[in-house]
């Protein structure tokens, strides 16, 4: 500390002398020293930069540019592939749809044919049953008319005989038949 103080004091004295001369920038006695060290510094910086730093940075920048270009082209390729895959998918989808339509139509036709056959069979059966029933009804109706005729003949005969009228069977029958027809 003590040496520093004395140094500072001498510096101050020195400084006073200097101040009369002007700015430290115009202290020409220090110029050779400054210029020497400046040149040393600049040469060192120049060699550090031009030998190590600048080639390295240029390399990194070029490499990065290359990587970006590669990545972009790879992305382009992948995109093309995706488009192709989509097209193939669409084609396959359309084909499948067509196939499905065909199968559905076939199945429909088959079912329709079966249905038609069954309906025809059922119709025939129903027609047969109807005819049978009609025959039975006609028979029954005929039987009923006969029975009515017989009962009417008998009844008429009985009524006439009870009234004391003698009538032969043939005239009664013809009368009843005429009446029933009317």
């Amino acid at each position: 500390m003590a040496t520093e103080t004395t140094e500072a004091a001498t510096d101050a004295a020195h400084g006073a002398a200097e101040t009369s001369a002007g700015m430290p920038q115009l202290e020409f006695g220090t110029f050779p020293n400054q210029i020497f060290w400046l040149v040393v510094a600049l040469v060192v910086i120049f060699f550090v930069l031009s030998r190590v730093a600048l080639p390295r940075i240029a390399g990194v920048l070029a490499e990065r540019q290359g990587t970006i270009t590669n990545d972009l082209s790879a992305a382009e390729e992948l995109k093309e592939k995706a488009v192709e895959a989509e097209e193939a998918y669409n084609v396959a989808l359309a084909e499948a749809r067509m196939e499905a339509g065909k199968i559905a139509a076939e199945a429909k036709a088959e079912i329709q044919a079966e249905l038609d056959a069954a309906a025809a069979r059922a119709d025939a059966e129903i027609a047969a049953k109807t005819a049978e029933s009609e025959a039975a009804i006609a028979e029954i109706r005929a039987g009923a008319v006969e029975a009515v005729k017989a009962v009417a003949k008998d009844t008429t005969g009985e009524i006439l005989s009870s009234m004391g009228v003698k009538a032969d069977a043939r005239s009664i029958t013809s009368a009843i038949n005429a009446r029933l027809k009317g």
């Binding site: 430290p24 020293n33 400054q34 510094a41």
Partner: peptide, 27 residues
Amino acid sequence: LDQFIVKPLFGGEHVGLFTITNVTLWL
């Protein structure tokens, strides 16, 4: 302007051609 005074770093007064000064340090 005192901040601009060129001083030898390791004692002494004289600033010779190869003297290590504060300029040298900051360069």
